[in-house]
Structures are given as structure tokens and as C-alpha cells.
Design a protein around this nucleic acid. Structure first.
Length: 588
RNA sequence: GGUCCUGUGGAGCAGUUGGAGUGCUCGCCGCCCUGUCAAGGCGGAGGCCGCGGGUUCAAGUCCCGUCAGGACCGCCA
């Protein structure tokens, strides 16, 4: 037995106890005649004292992060030497035995909670980074989140089932990661973008309630909250309505935040329709930690001579605005900065009107282009006070203009300090559109198996743009943390959806014939939800990046700074893998 | 694919209008030290200033290219 106690758990009640401990040298303070070692194991830190004898001699040779075993007696610290900052601060181990289990080379990064280290070095030596309290705590919290979800779902009769990670390329939104198949050269597996189709098959199987903490893979560019492999808490249930699924999701989120963020979500989480979210916040994942809503000026500005607005309105588009409190005091440079900001988002610019701090008079280039009547009522129409700025967006594409204003709203919230960083603001965004327009037709906004809502079940084909789905996202502080839908279980309805999407029978058969076949055999009504587990854990730990809650994350470009993956393969591997196999053209 | 930011001993940073010797803190190595807890004192080692080119009498500094990391846009149902 290496140890009889855990270092961080020793208390005054253990005084006079003879103990054996094992752990790492977190810090040493060598005074010559007396030497202190902070011994760290997974449970915490305790101070070890060496005074005289063989062990004390050997202790001089210790260095940071040596792995050691120590024997000694738990003692009360001399009066005045207690350390109130440590849970073990009342006691120390008076050591009489020391075994070096392994030595440590000089460290490439300080294993010290108080020192900032660059992320690239941390990830290169992630195993050392994870010896530190903060990074380790993030992974422990994630473990707790897994436990909470599993417990809750288990209690509600959900069955945890694993699905394949070597599977078939399916027509979902993102690029697939592909794996060559040695046994059938020229054919490829895809790594799943989500277990979507498998969980629907499990509903056909009659499990009724499935979940999985599932690894998913998408070959797209990275962001702070995106990795090529990521984790979803994936859930599907049969004989459920939209409200049933949302209730399950809500219980999970409530439990997570109660236990891990000490935050009680009281009452049902507010629901907002997708169209309301776009109209009021210019986003399908609105950050509700602050107000500042968008204002639709399409009616108010009807008949305007200002060409930018008039053109948008004539083409049936939209003119809207958002108020920046105190924005009139911005310098010319700052106002120009907004133009650059808007252009970076693909907009032509961001029109604005400033209301004079003293007189309330509207100023600025756009003000000159608006009629006296429009200017006179503008402040009331948008809810601006003297000293405020108003930003406008106009366009034939209503959604694009609203998204620009929505992005401006977030930027205003940040720049004006309107966001309460300690707040948790949740909402459901419901009644999402079924379809989005593409260059040559329609595409599913969620996925092709998403059911239309009751209003649109019989007529979504008549007006795809307006059709609404039983699809819902849960949003926290402007982050989409989960989303799902009720699925189509009726073959005829599925066929009609494919018609809208321009998928003919042959293509449907080719792409997901196996699912359609399964759906011939009495598929139950079903629906589900998937939570972005990395992002939820990042929110719960207060981390800026999901990399903080992933043990060994990848850096940009899919590079693993620790292992160096991806790497070239040997010619032998290349040959065996069948990467270069020439596939015979299909014979007619 | 695009825009922006950052690359200086092991770590974190500074380095002015281009101007003598790249500086600081921590760590590392050696010596001293009996109550510290981010111990302290004295001494020491350690640098292709990411890489390549250019401008200049002179480049860590300016210009071009390139690589790496990060943020954002596109993309990601």
C-alpha cells in the first residue's frame, strides 16, 4: 500500500496519527536546518516538515514535481504557524521517511496555480497543465455533469446505448471525416456528425427512451467553441410531444445549473418563437441578459426618399434600428469603426443617426436624408433619448438585415457594459422555419426528418418559406446549448418533405434508404434533443473556450499540439489502407 | 477562402522616433540559511529576437513573403 491517507483530507482530528502519503512535490521551502514540502495529490495539499536524520538529508535533493512517498506523524503546527488558506492548514506531517518514486526533469511550464501560461505551451504539455487546480477542476466538473445527466436520465427510464463511430456518410450539413477501408479498397467509412439516424432507428426498435454521451465529428473550420470532434448529450424518446422533450431538457439543465453553478432555474424556461427572436433580437439564439431590442421601422419609414431605405422597402424588405445608449458622444473614428465592423460582416455599412446630448436634435449623414416628419418622430419610434445613437440596417433580405442589427446589439451590449456577467438567461426558441432558401431551391434548416408543426402539416409544401417546424433550441446567455425536433414518422409526409427539398425517390433511397426501410415497420412518433456538452461544461466552469473542458483538445487546423497528430503515413500504410484505390466506374 | 492580433533564454512580459551592451520577474544550477507557506540571501548558466528576403551606414524595431498560435467573418442542419 503506497499510502494510508489522502494528503488534502488530513485534519486536526488526525493528530498523532502515523501516516504514509504519496504524491508530488508542489513546492519546497528549504531553510537548511528545516525544510518544508507541500505534498500534493489529487485530494489537495498538505505541508510536510523535515528536520533531521536521513530523510531530511535526502529531502534537500527534492525538486518540484518529484513523485514521492512520505511517512511521518500528523502534528499540530506550532502556534502562529497555521495557514488559514489551506484546508489542511492546522496540521503538518513531521516526516521520518522519504522515498523518491520518480524524479522530474526541469519543467517546461510552471505547475503553479498563480502563474499564467500561454495556451500553446499548456496544450503541448497538457498532462502537466492538468496537475494545476483550475484545469483539473474543469475536467472534474465535466465528470460531475456527466454523472448528473446519467443519473437523471436513468431515473426516468432512459437507456444508454452506444452507436457506431465508423458509419456511412450521410447528407447532413457539414463535411464528413472519412476513413479508408482496407478490406474493401475504394470504399470509405464516415465518422458520424451526430447519432441522429441511429437514434431514430432505436426508436423503431422500441427502446422508447435512449440517450448517449456521444462523440461527433465535423470537418469544418474551428472557433473558440468548435472542435473537429465534440460531444453531445444525445436524447431521443417515443410517444412524445414537443413539450415532453422540452420538459426533459429543462430538467437536465435545471439539475446541472443547480448542482454545478449554484443557480436555481425557477419556473419553466421562457419560450420565444423563432420569428419573435429575429424581430426583437436579430438572432436565433438571443442573449437575454440585457434588453435593447430591435425596432422595425418598415412601416414608420414608408415613403421615405432616402434611397437606401426606399430600395429595401420597395423590394418588400425591411428597415430596422437598434439604439446605442449614449452613442452620440462617439468620436468620428469610433463611428467609422462601426462601418468597418459592418463591412467585415458583409454589409455595405451601418447607417446611424445621433441625437444631440443637449438639444435632442438628430444629426449625422443619414439625418440629412430623412424628411422632417420622419426625423421628428424618430426618437419616439425607436425609443431613443438625447445623447443616444441609432443604428439602422436595411435590405431586401429581412433576415440578413436583422442579423446585422442583432450583431450590433451584442456589440452595443459589450461596449456599453449592459451585460450582467453574473446572470444566467435561458430561453427556448421554438417554431423555427422548416426550410431555408438556397440558390436553387430549399434546404432543411434543422434536418430532413424534422416534422412540420400541426398548423403546417398539410400545407408546408404550399409555402416552404413560411412553414414552421416542431423544432426547438435551448439558449443560454446567447449560446445555443441544445436543439432538437419532433421527427417525421409518416412515410407519406416524409416523401412530401423530400419533394420540397428536391430529393427524388432514387436519391432518398441511395442516401438513407436504410432509414426509410426501417420506417416501413411501424415507427413510433418520436422526437429528441441534443445538448452541446462541451459548451455547456464551458459555461458551467466559466471558461471562454471549450478547449478548457476537453482533456486533450486540438488547436486550429485540427492539429494536436501534444501528439503531433495528424501525421503522414508510411507507404506501407498507404498501400494497405486503400486510399489510392481506383474505383471502377459504375457499369450501366 | 477573407480580416485582425501575437511570435524576444524553460515560463510570463518590456524593449521609445531604427542608434553603443536585448532588460525585468519567475524558474533552473551552486553555496548559505531551524518555522516557511508564491520563503529569503549571495553567485551563476541559459537568447538563430519564429523563419526567409528587402530597405538602411545601422533592423528585435520599417517593408514584403512565409510558418505557427489566437479572435472574428464565410462555413458549421
Amino acid at each position: 500500500m503506497y499510502r494510508t491517507f489522502r494528503a488534502g483530507q488530513i485534519r486536526a482530528t488526525d493528530i498523532d496519527e502515523r501516516v504514509r502519503l504519496a504524491g508530488w512535490v508542489a513546492r519546497r521551502r528549504d531553510h537548511g536546518g528545516v525544510e518544508f514540502i507541500d505534498l500534493r495529490d489529487a485530494s489537495g495539499v498538505v505541508q510536510v516538515v523535515f528536520r533531521e536524520g536521513e530523510a531530511a538529508e535526502a529531502a534537500h535533493e527534492l525538486r518540484n514535481e518529484f513523485c514521492v512517498q512520505i511517512s511521518g506523524v500528523v502534528s499540530r503546527r506550532p502556534g502562529g504557524n497555521e495557514n488559514p488558506d489551506l484546508p489542511t492548514g492546522d496540521v503538518e506531517i513531521v516526516a521520518d521517511g522519504l522515498t523518491v518514486l520518480s524524479e522530474s526533469a526541469p519543467l517546461p511550464l510552471p505547475v503553479d496555480d498563480n502563474v499564467d501560461v500561454g495556451e500553446d505551451v499548456r496544450l503541448r504539455h497538457r498532462y502537466l497543465d492538468l496537475r494545476r487546480t483550475g484545469p483539473a477542476r474543469a475536467l472534474r466538473l465535466r465528470s460531475e455533469a456527466n454523472r448528473i445527466a446519467r443519473q437523471l436520465l436513468h431515473d426516468e427510464d432512459f437507456v444508454e446505448i452506444e452507436t457506431p463511430t465508423l458509419t456511412r456518410s450521410t447528407p447532413e450539413g457539414a463535411r464528413d471525416f472519412l476513413v479508408p477501408v482496407r478490406l474493401q479498397p475504394g470504399t470509405w467509412y464516415a465518422l458520424p456528425q451526430s447519432p441522429q439516424l441511429f437514434k431514430q432507428l432505436l426508436m423503431v426498435s422500441g427502446f422508447e427512451r435512449y440517450y448517449q454521451i456521444a462523440r461527433c465529428y465535423r470537418d469544418e473550420d474551428f472557433r473558440a467553441d468548435r472542435q473537429p470532434e465534440f460531444t453531445q448529450l444525445d436524447i431521443e424518446a417515443s410517444f412524445v410531444t414537443e413539450s415532453d422533450v422540452m420538459a426533459i431538457g429543462e430538467r437536465i439543465v435545471t439539475a446541472l445549473w443547480r448542482e454545478l453553478a449554484d443557480h436555481e432555474i425557477t419556473g419553466p424556461i421562457d419560450r420565444i418563437t423563432w420569428h419573435d427572436a429575429m424581430n426583437r433580437y436579430g438572432s436565433d439564439k438571443p442573449d437575454l441578459r440585457f434588453g435593447t431590442e430591435l425596432v422595425d421601422l418598415s412601416d414608420y419609414l414608408a415613403g421615405t426618399a432616402f434611397r437606401v431605405f426606399a430600395q429595401a422597402l420597395e423590394s418588400g424588405g425591411y428597415v430596422g434600428a437598434v439604439v446605442m445608449p449614449g452613442g452620440a458622444s462617439q468620436t468620428r473614428k469610433q463611428l467609422d469603426g462601426w462601418q468597418d465592423w459592418a463591412k467585415a460582416r458583409g454589409a455595405k455599412g451601418l447607417a446611424y443617426v445621433l441625437f444631440d446630448e443637449a438639444t435632442g436634435e438628430p444629426r449625422g449623414p443619414v439625418a440629412k436624408n430623412l424628411s422632417a416628419e420622419h426625423l421628428a418622430g424618430l426618437a419616439d419610434a425607436v425609443g431613443a433619448k438625447p445623447g443616444d445613437a441609432v443604428f439602422f440596417a436595411a435590405g431586401a433580405d429581412r433576415i440578413a438585415a436583422q442579423e446585422l442589427l442583432g450583431a450590433a446589439r451584442l456589440e452595443i451590449g459589450r461596449r456599453c457594459g449592459l451585460i450582467d456577467e453574473s446572470a444566467w438567461a435561458f430561453c427556448w426558441v421554438v417554431d423555427a422555419p422548416m426550410f431555408g432558401r438556397t440558390d436553387d431551391g430549399w434546404t432543411s434548416l434543422h434536418h430532413p426528418f424534422t416534422a412540420p408543426n400541426a398548423d403546417w402539416a398539410d400545407r408546408f409544401g404550399d409555402d416552404p418559406e413560411a412553414a414552421l417546424a416542431y423544432a426547438y433550441d435551448i439558449v443560454c446567455n446567447g449560446n445555443e446549448i441544445g436543439g432538437g425536433s419532433i421527427r417525421i414518422h409518416d412515410a407519406a409526409m416524409q416523401r412530401r418533405v423530400f419533394d420540397v427539398l428536391g430529393i427524388d425517390d432514387a436519391e432518398a433511397e441511395d442516401k438513407f434508404g436504410f432509414l426509410l426501410e426501417a420506417f416501413q415497420y411501424g415507427p413510433p412518433p418520436h422526437g429528441g434533443i441534443a445538448f452541446g456538452w462541451d459548451r455547456i461544461c464551458a459555461l458551467l466552469t466559466g471558461a471562454d473556450s471549450i478547449r478548457e473542458v476537453i482533456a486533450f483538445p486540438k488547436s486550429r487546423g485540427g492539429h494536436d499540439p501534444l501528439t503531433g497528430a495528424p501525421t503522414p503515413i508510411t507507404p506501407q500504410q498507404r498501400k494497405e489502407a486503400g486510399v489510392d484505390a481506383v474505383v471502377a466506374p459504375p457499369t450501366a
